[in-house]
Design a binder for these strands. Structure first.
Lengths: 121, 121
DNA sequence: CATACTGATTGACGAATATCAATGTTAGGG
DNA sequence: CCCTAACATTGATATTCGTCAATCAGTATG
């Protein structure tokens, strides 16, 4: 039984940047934040994410039926969610299991907060 | 000096729906939430929003230069942000002033929270 | 009114995206 | 080994999206 983590490059400089409501975002910052929102901007992707988030471990093969999409389509969407750092995949045997990346969603939520009580690190 | 509010239809059933992390989203719910994230999924739109959010009142004519886009493009983006219920426009004389819709962003942030301590109403 | 100005709308165009059939790849199971 | 199952990748297609030039609609000012 081989376990191989799926690499996700999260070049996040998001941990120490301001909420979107205090001052104008830089071009770079906007690009990075937009990538995350973009991952959540598709209904099918949102539903896939909510399935993964509602469980500990979700096999890819259990995603196709609920959203009624083909296997390549589901694979496409999980890739985008992973690229945004929202989920991580782990290959166990023939199956790939997905989990949400803890804290990533809260980080996004904090970006949206009106006041700025962000926990440092 | 005529004051005319710009109508924004916010057919939100979002106030009493679960975070995206507790159970699978319905198709309808996903469609509505995706609309909001979609509004925030473009770098230019994010920067426009951050400018508006950082001030009380922002004239449309003060948006073009910072993001370096044409007037129709800026108008296009403000329309999408308004459609998502994130900003409201008010026409005063020749100028249109934009403000963030208070609470709307927090509502979105709450959708992303892992736990679900949502203030009722 | 005539002119200038703000900004919304329309039309066009290139780029990006969602989708799936077909194919490739890797991992068991016989 | 060969076959099958799970998933990724590729290629193709239809649709959506971001952008701007051109135009239109409303408003102030002389």
């Amino acid at each position: 039984m081989v376990r191989r983590a799926i690499e996700v490059k999260v070049e996040s400089t998001l941990d120490n940047c301001c909420p979107v409501t205090t001052q104008m975002m830089s071009e770079d910052e906007a690009r990075e934040v937009a990538l995350i929102f973009d991952a959540l901007s598709d209904p099918v992707r949102l539903r896939i994410f909510s399935i993964i988030a509602a469980q500990k471990d979700t096999c890819s093969c259990h995603l196709e039926a609920p959203v009624d999409k083909s296997q390549p389509t589901v694979s496409h969407h999980t890739r985008i969610l992973a690229r945004a750092g929202l989920i991580t995949g782990e290959k166990r045997g023939r199956w790939t299991y997905w989990q949400v990346v803890p804290g990533r969603l809260d980080l996004v939520a904090n970006l949206l907060r009106s006041e700025a009580p962000r926990a440092k690190r």
